[in-house]
């Protein structure tokens, strides 16, 4: 073994650890660890009735999983979401296509869409609870109201962006109308359709959860609000974690590699392609 000169008093191992910690990959781990550590340190200072300790939240999280209402609650919510979204897609696609084709209709509907996009779901939740009391109808309606503007706007955009040049080309070859629709129009609309689905789903989910607080006696929204009503702080945070878990699951699973909306701002991994001579 070669004798090495000790140029500093800091052991080499430490230097390596610090170096590893400052790499970007380590950053992804450092962040949550930092949060939990700070949380653990700060919580006892504030008082555990208001701010639960991480360990309490973990306990509650596991209890909920075992006890089971959390699964059925989210299941109920998803069913409502599905129904509302289906309605929103059916009606929204038709209306969206119409608006894309007719500028006059679009001018007519424009301000409604703006209002529909900005009107707070909170108010819708309250309104439907006064209309329908507690049940499924209210939440499903709110899903529809929250999702439909996004479906309409995206489909209208899709129509406006239709590749006129390709359609003209197909017509000049006397291609039958059905074939033009199937091979040119539908594919050109499909990315907009997926965007409509994604935005409709994301906003429908937000609206649903809020509506369940006021207009339901079951479902994820109702459960987490209930936790707060009885003052179960760990319960609220535990449910928040379940929300995060399910939200990510839905995005990832349902849309897979198409979920660029949430992840598009992240840098893509460099293409493992051969260097091309430009």
């Amino acid at each position: 073994m070669q004798a090495t000169l000790e140029t500093s008093r800091v052991p080499a191992a430490w230097i390596r650890i610090v170096h590893l910690l400052t790499t970007p990959r380590a950053a992804r781990l450092t962040a949550p660890i930092l949060i939990i550590v700070t949380w653990q340190l700060v919580a006892p200072l504030i008082g555990s009735t208001l701010l639960p300790m991480p360990i309490d939240v973990l306990e509650e999280f596991i209890d909920l999983a075992i006890e089971g209402t959390v699964w059925s609650a989210f299941a109920i919510s998803f069913v409502r979401l599905g129904i509302g979204l289906a309605l929103a897609v059916v009606i929204g696609v038709v209306v969206g296509l119409l608006l894309g084709l007719s500028p006059r209709a679009e001018a007519f509907a424009h301000d409604f869409l703006v209002i529909g996009l900005t009107f707070p779901y909170l108010i819708w939740g309250i309104i439907v609870s006064m209309w329908f009391g507690f049940g499924d109808a209210g939440p499903i309606l709110v899903v529809f109201i929250a999702a439909v503007p996004y479906v309409i706007v995206n489909m209208a955009e899709g129509v406006r962006d239709a590749p006129r040049d390709l359609i003209d080309m197909a017509r000049s070859y006397d291609a039958p109308r059905l074939r033009v629709i199937r091979q040119v129009v539908v594919p050109s609309l499909s990315p907009f359709f997926f965007a409509a689905l994604r935005y409709g789903l994301a906003n429908g989910w937000k609206g649903l959860v809020l509506a369940e607080v006021f207009a339901a006696t079951s479902g994820a929204g109702w459960e987490i609000a209930g936790m707060r009503d009885i003052g179960n702080a760990s319960g609220v945070v535990a449910y928040a974690l379940y929300f995060a878990f399910f939200s990510i699951l839905v995005e990832r699973l349902v849309f897979g590699r198409l979920s660029d909306w949430v992840f598009r701002w992240r840098p893509r991994r460099p293409e493992a392609a051969r260097a091309v001579n430009a």
């Binding site: 790499t23 950053a27 962040a31 937000k206 929204g221 928040a240 995060a244 949430v262 992840f263």
Partner: peptide, 24 residues
Amino acid sequence: YWREFFSDYIMLTLTTPGLVFALI
């Protein structure tokens, strides 16, 4: 480094409904 540090937090807060934050 900072990109990786904040990316998960951003993704979580974008997908979690506002209700959760309001309640907490």
